[in-house]
Amino acid sequence: MNKHFGENHVLRDIDLDIHTGEVVVLLGASGSGKSTLCRCVNRLETVDSGLISLAGVPLPDEGGELARLRARVGMVFQSFNLFGHLSVLDNITLAPTRVRGLSRHEAAERARQLLDRVGLADKADARPVQLSGGQQQRVAIARALAMDPQVLLFDEPTSALDPETVGEVLDVMAGLAADGMTMLVVTHEMGFARRVADRVVFLDEGRVRETATPDEFFDAPRTERAREFLSKVLSH
């Protein structure tokens, strides 16, 4: 897969397989293309050449068919993107009722279960603005889970959070990984990558430079670029 922004060749010959139940963490300096890659997977960014398939079915470029497949790929954003005019519960039930055709009652029941799972059972009627960043991000995870996704994409889910709320979001994510969720995670949280990832993919200038288990990658990076990157992020 290839992707340009104008003259800038941001993703070069990316070839990546994610297996069911696998947790893949994308690492790389800012500008290395890892967020763009993550956004390309559910076609929030168009790709110039290449193919993205979900369970063997290629994702089309646009239209209703894409929306249907996209409903099976959950996405969690850096800036949460909760719907500001809706309560927490309505944020979670909107897509299940409108896209999957669940009744309001079914959707609300499921939403309450998910809120319980992310530790926010008492916040169903709150507005997003009344929640802390960490709480908003946990609601966003519950909202993505409500569509029973086959894959969850995380685009720097903790980068906009206060340090003391990062842990609560990472704990929820680690719990999902332990339950066998297939996940692609862009993050700067090296501890999380090491603990939770099955595989680390290191991106540099839009290329996959290294693919390894976390232990291999963090203890014995094979490329000079990866060694440089790690010395910068782990030195403090």
Binding site: R70, N81, G84, A95, M147
Partner: peptide
């Protein structure tokens, strides 16, 4: 904010649904 439409699309809402339920009310 742009992220509102992106979140709606990522959840599988079509153009009309996204406009009607997420963008226009705000």
């Amino acid at each position: 904010p742009r992220g509102q439409a992106e979140a709606a699309r990522a959840l599988g809402l079509g153009f009309g649904q996204c406009l009607r339920h997420v963008i226009l009310p705000q």
